[in-house]
Design a protein around this nucleic acid. Structure first.
Lengths: 206, 206, 206, 206
DNA sequence: AATGAATGAGCATTCATTCAT
DNA sequence: TATGAATGAATGCTCATTCAT
């Protein structure tokens, strides 16, 4: 594919991508038919296959675009922060906001992870995100701000808390992105123990 | 469809449930056809519809059974622990072990969450799990072991970290369930900050 | 495929094969749709795929059956003839009659030869037919009844004349199979030269 | 569609005809799409429909051109031969050479004959070829060089042997056109019987 | 003359479900 | 209980053809 497109062509393609993304998120990938998509956009069936090689390829394109957009925004959000912990905080905050604003894409990424055909793409994006976070975590450890631990575990833990709390607090319970971000950051930074019991545990662990 | 079944009938039904669960996890729900399932088990199509009203209902049954099993095992793991933090730890540890041993059901639960038709079932199971955890978290707070915070946030945070780290460390990277459980518990209990910076942050926060 | 079929199933399958063979012969393979076939037989679309793996496979089956039938009849026609030339004559005669009686299959074999996907099947059948004829040609040569020449060329020449004259005389011009068979046999046996000029040519050739 | 074309236009048209002829011969008429053709030639779709009314018309044009070319060459090959048998021999020889050199067109003519839509064109060309041969056959009979028989049968017999042996010996077995021509001429002229048995048969037949 | 974009009927095939036996 | 056979709507995709530019 990768046709050379006119401005009009690029607009059509975008229209199809957006419409499909919303339908996939609402209805699921399999239950959403190509017919449904082209009818929704108001074009003939051939148009779909003019812009995309297949329904699968369209989905892949949506996933790639989504991950690229999130990454770009996270980078921008982070770039001016000098402090490692603040950089992590900014990244988490931006993730929550992005997932809130693009909840259909959030749903799609989770969906894609469950289909062997698309999972590698999601995993790859996630590895990228973790790789992006790693230097800051490392810097935090070097500066004595972050506990010594496997930076990969730290990164994945942060991602897990962020995604889960966004889903529950923002999407299910309707709280604001900022509230959810605060909660996620607090959980990630301090854990659940009280300072007293933490000290006790630390003492035990060495 | 709550037929009264003979022992042989119950075995047949179980066979179908198990085979379908594995196929769904490997291939996806939609791409796995009823024909594929009955062929795999070696029976005719009528048998399927004797035991299950529909393919959807079969999937629902798998989900219900899985959640019931996990819950039962978690309860057993917890019941002898007197200390709230230890109860939480035991719960997390059991979850990681169960998700490791039943990774196809893990995949299925994630899959079901992405399909509006099945998502309520998963959400309901999760709410149940959170409700089960809440008293212990509350007890931990009352005993001064756990930081004061919204217990719901705490519960969901724990679940998020547990699921994510199990997926990444155990399923993707092949580490043992115990290693992953240790990592999850450490992350949840202590967070990522070093004691020093935690003290600083606490001071700031009030 | 090669399902185990009940008597009813075998009848259905035959119905589909016959109907499709006639449609393919009249309309062509590509222009005849599966829908057309199942509608013509008066069954649902699934029935087609219950009995055949694909439209291609159905066509292949038709070709195989046709070639098997022709071969069987030729064998029977020949078996009581003691004289090699008479055996060849009987074979040609039977071929003309069969092609007349099964003109739709005649058309199909020619059609199949033009599609790379099916051509090997036709070529194989033809090689079989030639191989079947070879011993009689050889016997004729050994008995001094047939000119010494490459038996393969002889066999293919006979097949070519037989097919062509059947098509032109019987199918296009409406003459009887017997008339066409006489013409084919005369052409093959004696060629087109007059005895006088043949003698002259023979003298020349040595 | 008999547009007046510039020199460049004529070249483009020829390019499309040639490319299509080869694709049709390799892939079949139906399986070859217009898109495939225009992509192969490196032009847009509009160009195709500028030069040809439809895909069918393009195919018809290829067939007409092919038959015209073969006929012209056969005429030239024959014109200097005074002897009727030599004229027939020259015609057969040229046919074998032409079919060898233009095997894709050979395939196309056979293909076209199997599709009711195009068959009349092929039949017409063949009737033309037969009509062209008839006077020479008649002259041969009048001169006592050719056995008295229906000249039409003689003509079609020759065509059948020529086509078949060319296909088998040249295309399938890779022999030279001249070898095949020799074989075809020998078969047509003398038939398969030995002189002795021919005499016996002649005596019998009258 | 030429292009990229669009059309939409049509195609082979699948599949959840039903039913007669 | 169980089976083989049947249903037919629906699916992803193709393709000859048309059209605005």
């Amino acid at each position: 594919m990768s046709r050379r497109l006119t401005a009009r062509g690029r607009r059509r393609r975008k229209e199809l991508l957006d419409f499909a993304a919303h339908r996939f998120a609402t209805n699921g990938f399999h239950p959403t038919s190509v017919t449904e998509i082209v009818d929704g956009v108001g074009v003939g069936k051939g148009v779909f296959y003019w812009y995309f090689e297949s329904k699968d390829e369209l989905f892949r394109q949506i996933l790639i675009d989504a991950q690229r957009d999130l990454r770009r925004q996270q980078r921008q959000a982070i770039e001016d922060e000098p402090d490692p912990l603040r950089r992590i905080e900014a990244g988490v905050r931006m993730a929550v906001h992005w997932l809130d604003a693009n909840r259909h894409l959030f749903a799609l990424l989770e969906l894609a992870r469950t289909e062997e055909r698309f999972a590698p793409l999601v995993r790859q994006g996630e590895e990228q995100a973790v790789a992006d976070a790693l230097p800051h975590i490392q810097a935090g450890m070097d500066a004595g701000l972050i506990r010594r631990a496997d930076p990969l575990v730290v990164a994945h833990g942060i991602v897990g808390v962020t995604n889960t709390l966004t889903r529950v607090l923002v999407l299910d319970q309707g709280q604001t992105a900022d509230t959810a971000a605060d909660a996620a950051i607090a959980f990630c930074f301090e854990g659940i123990m009280s300072p007293a019991s933490a000290r006790a545990r630390l003492g035990r662990a060495g």
